[in-house]
Structure formats: structure tokens, C-alpha cells
């Protein structure tokens, strides 16, 4: 089986990570933001898999499972929050969420 050189693997993981980050920056809808965060988590997991395979240890994969578990927990709480947000604000646009800010008229 042809082994892909380690640099390419890291590059791939990094690009995946960057995609997630850009997705987060560009997207206004909260749900898509959550999705891009998931992408970033998975890319981090991917790095662990790569490291695990490189060093021939299973720690990488164990770590990946932890990451998945945590990401799942985080998403579930996130979706609960988004539900509440939609219920309260009737919108999913992230920029609507800006009532907490430095108000203009501070003396």
C-alpha cells in the first residue's frame, strides 16, 4: 500500500482546519457555524490519527475517540442553545446577537 508522505497528511489536516475556520468566519447562520466548528474538531482528530499512525501507537486513535465524544457533547449543548435562541430571537443570524456591546453613550 502506498504510504502518503507525512507532510502531505499534515497539509491536508491543516487545510481541513483552515476550511473550518473560514467557514466560521464567512457564514452568518449559527447552525453552519456549528458545522464548521465540527469540521475543525475533526481535522484536529485527524492530526492525532496521523501522529498515531506515524509513531505506531494507539494513543492517537484513543485521543480521536475522546475528541469525538467531546465534540458530540459540545454540539448537543450548542443545538440546545440554538433552539432557545431561535425561540427567543426568532432568527438564526449570528450578527443579530449583538445586544451585549460597548454602548455609544458611555460618559
Amino acid at each position: 500500500m502506498v504510504t502518503i508522505p507525512i507532510e502531505i497528511q499534515i497539509l491536508f489536516a491543516a487545510s481541513l482546519f483552515l476550511l473550518g475556520l473560514i467557514g466560521l468566519l464567512v457564514r452568518r447562520n449559527i447552525i453552519f457555524m456549528l458545522m464548521s466548528i465540527e469540521v475543525m474538531f475533526n481535522s484536529a482528530g485527524l492530526v492525532f490519527i496521523i501522529a498515531g499512525s506515524r509513531w505506531g501507537q494507539t494513543d492517537g486513535q484513543v485521543m480521536f475517540i475522546f475528541i469525538l465524544a467531546v465534540a458530540a457533547a459540545e454540539v448537543s449543548v450548542g443545538l440546545a442553545l440554538i433552539l432557545q435562541m431561535f425561540h427567543h430571537y426568532k432568527t438564526l443570524d449570528a450578527d443579530e446577537l449583538s445586544k451585549l456591546r460597548d454602548s455609544k453613550n458611555d460618559s
Partner: peptide
């Protein structure tokens, strides 16, 4: 930020 942290950890582990 946790994603960043993880990615960093991954690289160090690598």
C-alpha cells in the same frame, strides 16, 4: 479555541 488547542496538541504529539 479548543479546536486550536487540540490541533496544537496533535502537532506536538506528532
Amino acid at each position: 479555541s479548543s479546536a486550536f488547542l487540540l490541533f496544537g496538541m496533535g502537532l506536538i504529539y506528532l
